[in-house]
Design a protein around this nucleic acid. Structure first.
Lengths: 113, 113
DNA sequence: CCTATATTCAACCGTATGGTTGAATATCAT
DNA sequence: ATGATATTCAACCATACGGTTGAATATAGG
């Protein structure tokens, strides 16, 4: 469940317009119209982008009259964060281990064979 | 420079096969052939995936004879990590601030105006 | 009720993506 | 040199993506 969810979150974050929307939303809630204004694309395009963010669990959209208020969902990043955390730590540890190995080996480490 | 790079890294991470390749690579270096074996897709497809990871700066590929040895590039995650770090903290802070506001306001917070 | 506003929906378009297959390239082993 | 192995390249295919435009829906306000 979590794994397949990562697809959507990473995918959602891979678009600069969507990251910009998140950046704007980090300053506070906003309607779709207000969100769309600064972007050089159509209203409908922004609406779609918000849909992607919503499906990824990064944003919530709530009806208020004829407007839709968008807010950031802080929990949306936790899975991604966990993935990054784990892998970055793991990679760094391996790198450190390799460094240590090289350091304590006087001659040729000969990792190739 | 960093911003457009994020596109590539997030994009690369959005595919489960590519994340699995990274997972395998976290255990240690491997040739393209060894990497491709467990996956239900063709050799060429895996080679392409590795290309995507390489272009995103997450993996390095080095020729060793007729084989190509792939390794994880630990530095590849730092930009993404920084982005997540910043946003997660920011979002959480806003959420905390909102909680505090709601807590100390007896009646209607009236966040709408 | 009528009209303007806010938003989505639907259909469409060009391009990118992930996949395949078969040919091309380079290296190893005999 | 010859043949097998490892990998990429090139062409192709189906599907998904980001974009547009115009119609549809719903609410606000005179």
């Amino acid at each position: 469940m979590v794994e397949y969810h990562l697809d959507h979150v990473f995918r959602a974050l891979s678009d600069p317009t969507r990251r910009a929307i998140l950046g704007r939303l980090a300053e506070g809630e906003a309607t779709v119209g207000r969100l769309a204004k600064p972007f050089p694309v159509s209203f409908a395009a922004v609406s779609k982008h918000i849909g992607v963010l919503e499906r990824a669990g990064l944003v919530t959209r709530e009806a208020r009259g004829r407007e839709r208020v968008c807010r950031i969902n802080p929990a949306g990043l936790t899975d991604v964060r966990a993935w990054i955390d784990f892998h970055e730590r793991f990679w760094t540890e391996r790198l450190d281990a390799l460094d240590a190995l090289v350091a304590e080996t006087p001659g040729e480490p000969d990792r190739t064979r």
